[in-house]
Design a protein around this nucleic acid. Structure first.
Length: 369
DNA sequence: AATTCGGGGAG
DNA sequence: CTCCCAGAATT
């Protein structure tokens, strides 16, 4: 069947690697050849993957589900079929098309990376992990994934799915993120070390397995091609892995956002290039800080983009970010002249849907009625 | 090693 | 509601 060779179980202190044999890879690849899903960025069997598509998909898929990414990937590929085309686009347009996908530093780094590859590397992505890792927005996981999937390099690929699969296979009891090192060492023992071992397919098969079979809760061990090799399945405590630290509770921040109009136009803010929603458009707001009540009129008046009569709405818009909840009420006003505000720009209300507002601001729009 | 970055789908 | 996802960059 598959004639790959494998990494020797080297620095796996404390964990038995009896099952780290070619059997795991063989069983997994057989399963993959049967169950393989067709995805927009995935090459057909026997076809060579396009590095540009692999890269674009991997950036979009960082901390983002396949279902969410699909439409964005198709849209980006249609707008910019090559890395050169993407490099030529203005960053503002890339951010606009990325709007709603989240983690906007990814979009800024995506664009930066496209310009490096086009301007300094002749339009060719590096084929080595180290070369890829040096590019903006490409870390350990993404470098390994692109090397394996696009270039057939036998890299050890470990994402969140594979962390779960491997930690269960070997019952790795270390708590994340300290467990990352033993998990990667264990993954290395079952990862093909030669091109003939189909490292790209192996990585994608592991991720598919984690996404559809070896799920966080109620894993479908009866359908798993690796169940016979799996220590956790044998022991019956699959859901215990991977071991994580208990989450901390998210605080609630409260703010007033400003809906200022003039002649069917609305005033928006271009946010600073770094930090939360960096580079994205949004409504002017009071600072998003943790507090038990909304700012009083005397507090938010000076944060307003215009001094005058505001009508404060009752309805509260709610949105949750990675590490805090945000509650917002809207202050509404109209001005007779199109005043100039630092970092502000006016947009026709009819075009508001097309400027690429982050989701948190889209949720505030109905409050203006 | 810990924090900061979005948003949505599944349960 | 909670959990977590094809993580990276910063501190």
């Amino acid at each position: 069947m598959h004639d790959a060779t494998y990494n020797k179980p080297a620095a796996l202190k404390g964990y038995s690697v009896k099952n780290a044999t070619t059997d795991i890879s063989n069983d997994l690849l057989d399963w993959y050849d049967r169950e393989r899903r067709s995805l927009p960025w995935r090459a057909e069997p026997g076809q060579r993957a396009d590095p540009y598509r692999v890269w674009l998909s991997e950036i979009m898929l960082q901390q983002t589900t396949v279902a969410t990414v699909k439409a964005y990937f198709v849209k980006f590929l249609k707008l910019w079929p090559t890395v050169e085309a993407l490099a030529q686009a203005p960053q503002e347009q890339v951010l606009k098309e990325w709007a709603g996908l989240g983690y906007y530093a990814r979009a800024r780094n995506l664009h930066k990376c496209a310009r490096v590859v086009t301007g300094e590397l002749g339009g060719q992505f590096p084929q080595s992990e180290d070369g890829l890792r040096a590019l903006p927005g490409i870390g350990d996981y993404t470098a390994a994934a692109i090397a394996a999937i696009a270039f057939g390099v036998p890299a050890v690929v470990v994402d969140g799915n594979i962390e779960r699969v491997v930690s269960r296979l070997f019952r790795i009891n270390d708590m994340l993120p300290q467990a990352k090192k033993p998990i990667k060492a264990a993954a290395a023992t079952i990862t093909p070390t030669e091109r003939s071992g189909r490292p790209g397919d192996f990585a994608q098969a592991m991720m598919d397995l984690g996404a559809g079979v070896c799920t966080p809760r109620k894993p479908k061990c009866s359908q798993c091609p690796l169940a016979a090799h799996c220590k956790a399945a044998t022991f019956g405590d699959m859901e215990r892995y991977p071991v994580r630290k208990p989450k901390t509770v998210k605080p609630t921040r409260r703010a007033i956002s400003f809906w200022l109009t003039h002649n069917s136009h609305i005033l928006l803010e271009r946010r600073a290039d770094k930090g939360l929603l960096g580079g994205m458009p949004g409504l002017f707001s009071t600072p998003w800080v943790e507090r038990t009540e909304f700012p009083g009129a005397g507090e938010w008046a000076d944060a307003a983009p215009h001094q005058g009569e505001w009508r404060l709405g009752e309805t509260i818009a709610k949105h949750t970010f990675t590490h805090f909840h945000l509650e917002t009420r809207l202050a509404v006003a109209a001005v007779p002249a199109r005043l100039n505000v630092e970092n502000g720009f006016w947009v026709p209300l009819a075009d508001l849907a097309d400027v690429g507002l982050p989701t948190v601001f889209k949720k505030m729009l109905p409050l203006a009625r």
